[in-house]
Design a protein around this nucleic acid. Sequence first.
DNA 1: AACACTACTGACAAAAATGTCAATAAAGAG
DNA 2: CTCTTTATTGACATTTTTGTCAGTAGTGTT
Lengths: 200, 200
Amino acid sequence: MSIKSNDTPRIRRTPEESRANILAAAEQLLVEQGPQSLRLADVAKAAGVANATVLHHFGSISAVHTALMEQMIGQLVDSIMAIEIPVDAPVEARAVGLKTLFDALETPGVARLAAWLELTDETSRLTVVREAVQEVAQKKISSAGVPEDLAEDMILLSVTLAVGVGLFGPSLGKLIGKPEGRARELTLQMLLANFQRLAE
Amino acid sequence: MSIKSNDTPRIRRTPEESRANILAAAEQLLVEQGPQSLRLADVAKAAGVANATVLHHFGSISAVHTALMEQMIGQLVDSIMAIEIPVDAPVEARAVGLKTLFDALETPGVARLAAWLELTDETSRLTVVREAVQEVAQKKISSAGVPEDLAEDMILLSVTLAVGVGLFGPSLGKLIGKPEGRARELTLQMLLANFQRLAE
DNA sequence: AACACTACTGACAAAAATGTCAATAAAGAG
DNA sequence: CTCTTTATTGACATTTTTGTCAGTAGTGTT
């Protein structure tokens, strides 16, 4: 008497594919709706699988969160690592590098990620961020043939401002009635002028 | 047969006092542990009352969240409204005003609040922010006897950067191995230099 | 002192969220 | 084709969180 209707045949993926599928769905949820939507049922539904499938691959919803953080941070680090901002280069080269940095940090997903990390104080998870930043800092700072102090300051300044602009520039600008990207534009101008000032 | 032990006599407050007590406890929870700790049981325990008491005064835990947002935003707006940053004033005056602004935005609670708002996309709640910013923008921008465009830009720039520094300056600086407050210092220097540049 | 009002509470109900498990079915190996 | 492996799943159990309700107890009034 046990008849199983088979309208929707199962999709059987490799473990890696399945994990990737679930994380992709979770990332979209995070970007579009925030971390409070990263519930087990929501993630499973968005991924098109059963709740138990998510748990089968990750063990717990918390592990999904950690994996998602790691993946998004990894992607962000990769995009940042590809940027070159020589402090002693001509102005145009620095401008391009800076814009790329701001681009990388201005996508909505990054803002959500940053806010999420800021609110997730479990120290275990902060380790992920620490490692990522150290990777960027070491490779970037040490490689440039520039006074380390200056380079470090410039990087700290650029990244901090880029994150701030990426997170709140659009919202604040819109609220004040400024055209899209105005905060970014102002900040970039100021950073470049400041670089020029320090280079003299 | 119904004997009530009376070791801890009830505290009976006015409705206003009770709401204030609960919101104060909730604020502390938010600042110290983040919004995921703003659960009914946690808030009630922190406030030293029963769960039902919280619901009696606010109706739902969600209403507590909204009220807390409104209160914290209100406090922040008040502190910002008290700041004067005349764009045409001497350098020292602008420096003091800017530092005050950064102070106001650099407390841990503000960072948590900003991140919380960023992640809470329910449009109903965003209204609170919109109104607050409009209040600041109107009074501040219109009052100063300065070209509106310039004043608006300076405010947008200052606030955006101050929020960014307040949120991520400490963490990023620590991760890179910079002394506490380095990002703030660099940003302030740059902002002042930029004001000077534009004033000429 | 008796009464009215209502802030307050414990016990319980309801809902939401996470996790467990045995059974099912897709894919490759023999 | 048969067997083994295991990704997948529905049904169920557990835990967590929110909300309800009737009764209790302060506080002011008459």
